[in-house]
Amino acid sequence: MMKFIRSKDTRWLSIWVLSTLAVWIWDIVFLNKPALHKVFNGFFNTFIIAILVVVFTLILGWMVTVLLHALQSRTNRAPYLAVTFLMNLIRSIPQIVGILFAYVGITLLVAGSVITSKALVFIIMAISMSLFIFLELVDLMRDRIDHFTKLDFYSAMRVCGIPERRVVNFDILWKNSRLHIQNKLIAVLGYAVFLQCSVDFIISVGLSTEVNEVTLPTTLGSLLAKIDSKQDILAIGYTLTHPGYTGHLFFEHLQGMTVAFLIVFSLVSIYHIANGYAERHRL
């Protein structure tokens, strides 16, 4: 147990889980049922989508990395250059703009009844977000492959007749980069939560007639943009000049406070977990 707590990553994982549980218990006692239901849904949806983003990022990242590695060694450089060019283009589009447009597209598909299943909406949202994140993982995986191919590691295995796909997939990526990839995926989880909350907040604030919670699932970001949550958040500012009001925050402004806490504390915790993981494994 002490060992578990001594590592920064596992310590922060425990802090995150326990703090979230404590907030839920507090909310069960003091927050009204409909609000509690909404907050729970928002939290659940946010993390389901974020986890799906992580999964799709891994799949996309691994596939593109292996594809690029295969194309790189070909004599015909055109396919390799074309793929890298496309990747650089995706890189040049600010993620938030890309995701915003993807969400608008999803809304149109939902409104036009092209997509009717909620699960499919989740999946398409996650795929569109991972499209703008997966390049980070590709960069990492390609760096790792480059690192090992520069060493004798790669040549020594190849001249023993070990197939290229095994050297790249098993020896380099699985055996020697798994920890790096896991660490990156933890960071991706945090980034997915941040981007999703931000896009949903923007959408709910600015595009309410076009895209709203009727067409997209409720998330922490869209909940925060609701007028009741907004008022709760405004109350924080009020306590800065009226400290005596602080106590009210935890009883009368629970919906907004919970949502803001869940977003910010999750981001901080994921950040510390990723850092701690990197420190523990000296990545």
Partner: peptide
């Protein structure tokens, strides 16, 4: 290869 540390998958 010269350096076993590099040549092997440690």
């Amino acid at each position: 290869f010269q350096h076993a540390d590099e040549a092997l998958d440690l």
